[in-house]
């Protein structure tokens, strides 16, 4: 099971398909690990995978570094705030929030692709 989940998560994460979710969902739903620790595992899991993906994507010229930098500063402020909040929230509440977040994201992803079909108008 670890093998299947690991490979699936790796594929999805490297494609930027919300794959960070797969492992975390598995850990939250099917194991006894608490939400905080599960999220920590997910983050650790993502780091080497992202590193390898980034190298391959850079080679394929699929990464626009300037745009990434533009989002990074605000992103870092958010990351620090979110990470601290996560540590201070009760793990049960964090779990419920995560469940609600998943439903919202799932619905958005499912119905969202229509929006992209609009012709680009830049």
């Amino acid at each position: 099971m670890n093998i299947i989940i690991g490979i699936l998560s790796g594929i999805a994460a490297s494609m930027g398909l919300g794959g960070g979710f797969i492992l975390l969902i598995y850990l939250s739903v099917f194991t006894e690990i608490t939400q905080n620790v599960a999220q920590g595992i997910n983050i650790l899991f993502f780091l080497p995978i992202a590193f390898i993906s980034v190298i391959i994507h850079l080679k394929n010229k699929l990464i626009d570094i300037r745009t990434v930098i533009r989002y990074s500063l605000a992103g870092l402020i958010g990351a620090v705030a979110g990470s601290f909040l996560s540590a201070y929230l009760d793990t049960g509440i964090l779990r419920k929030l995560f469940g609600a977040f998943l439903i919202i994201i799932g619905l958005k992803e499912f119905f969202g692709s229509k929006i992209k079909k609009k012709p680009q108008e830049n």
């Binding site: 994460a13 930027g16 920590g40 992202a50 699929l62 990464i63 626009d64 989002y71 870092l76 540590a87």
Partner: peptide, 27 residues
């Protein structure tokens, strides 16, 4: 956009991981 998002989240995740570690949530 997908590929670039991986780099962005990678950078953010490094900082997140450090804070998780400080709070004892990394295993």
């Amino acid at each position: 956009a997908h590929a670039s998002s991986v780099l962005l989240i990678f950078v953010l995740s490094i900082f997140t991981a450090i804070i998780y570690f400080l709070n004892g949530n990394l295993d």
